[in-house]
């Protein structure tokens, strides 16, 4: 049983969805990003996603793009993601890394998995890596016990849902809408349908991300998914009001996942 399995066993026992929050490492600085990620957990996130800032984030909208630029301009280096994860692990915060694949490919897939495991990380969310291209990551994750969180999308065929869920572990990341990250007024109706279709292929928990920004939306998504994933709204909160705003948003969302619509 992986540590993520334990998290989901706990939230299932409590009869609720898990709350997963995303913020980039190194935003606005490495030290401050640790405090912001810690505040998400303090406010009620069950798992944090530590983003690895990348020069070409094609799946991200303007909010996360801008945060990535800020982090890179401040001199963020890839190896610092392990410092961030390590400090979160010391604080007992379950953390996964979300990263585009080239920085991992360049670091060395096996070495990255090994260093992430050593830092106390639980797995990697891979927005631009599909299982078809992931032979080395499948091997490295098995060797190190890291979870493989692949994405499914409303456009995924049944065949691809079967392939992707069978390669995944920890949880499956369902992208609620066809589009990039960013807070939206409404989370697509596609989301519930995608969760239903995905569930037919796997026992793994299914998290829904892309567009969730407030407690009411979190409650809606918690009504049909096993986890609610929030990113851009946390970045906007961090920008607006730092640690306090991040903790408050996490509390509001945590309330939402405990009162599903």
């Amino acid at each position: 049983m992986s540590r993520l399995d334990e998290v989901f066993a706990k939230t299932r026992a409590e009869g609720r969805a898990a709350l997963i929050g995303y913020l980039p490492a190194g935003y606005p600085t490495v030290a401050e990003s640790i405090e912001l990620l810690g505040a998400m957990a303090d406010g009620g996130c069950d798992v944090v996603e530590v983003g690895l800032p990348y020069s070409d984030p094609v799946m991200d909208g303007p909010t996360i793009q801008a945060a990535s630029v800020t982090a890179l301009d401040a001199g963020f280096r890839v190896r610092q993601v392990f410092d961030v994860v390590s400090e979160l692990a010391r604080r007992q915060v379950p953390a996964v890394v979300m990263t585009y694949w080239n920085p991992v490919h360049h670091y060395g897939v096996a070495a990255f998995a090994k260093d992430l495991a050593a830092a106390g990380g639980l797995g990697i969310v891979t927005p631009d890596l599909i299982p078809d291209e992931a032979a080395d990551w499948l091997a490295a994750s098995r060797d190190t016990g890291m979870d493989r969180i692949f994405l499914v999308a409303p456009s995924s065929t049944e065949e691809r849902l079967a392939l992707t869920t069978s390669a995944a572990s920890g949880f499956v990341y369902a992208t609620a809408v066809m589009g990039v990250t960013g807070a939206r007024d409404a989370v697509g109706v596609d989301a519930a349908d995608l969760v239903r279709r995905t569930r037919a292929h796997t026992e793994l928990p299914i998290g829904v991300g892309l567009g969730v920004r407030d407690g009411a939306q979190a409650a809606t998504v918690a009504g049909f998914a096993d986890a609610v994933i929030v990113g851009s709204a946390f970045v906007a909160a961090a920008e607006r009001g730092g640690v306090t705003a991040v903790r408050e948003l996490a509390s509001e969302l945590a309330e939402g996942v405990r009162n599903p619509a």
Binding site: W101, P127, L129, I130, E133, T175
Partner: peptide, 18 residues
């Protein structure tokens, strides 16, 4: 798989694979 020797492939978001 769209590979010329080791090069090429599809390092793309799942949303675009279909």
């Amino acid at each position: 798989n769209g590979r010329f020797g080791p090069y090429g492939g599809r390092f793309m978001p799942e949303a675009l694979i279909a």
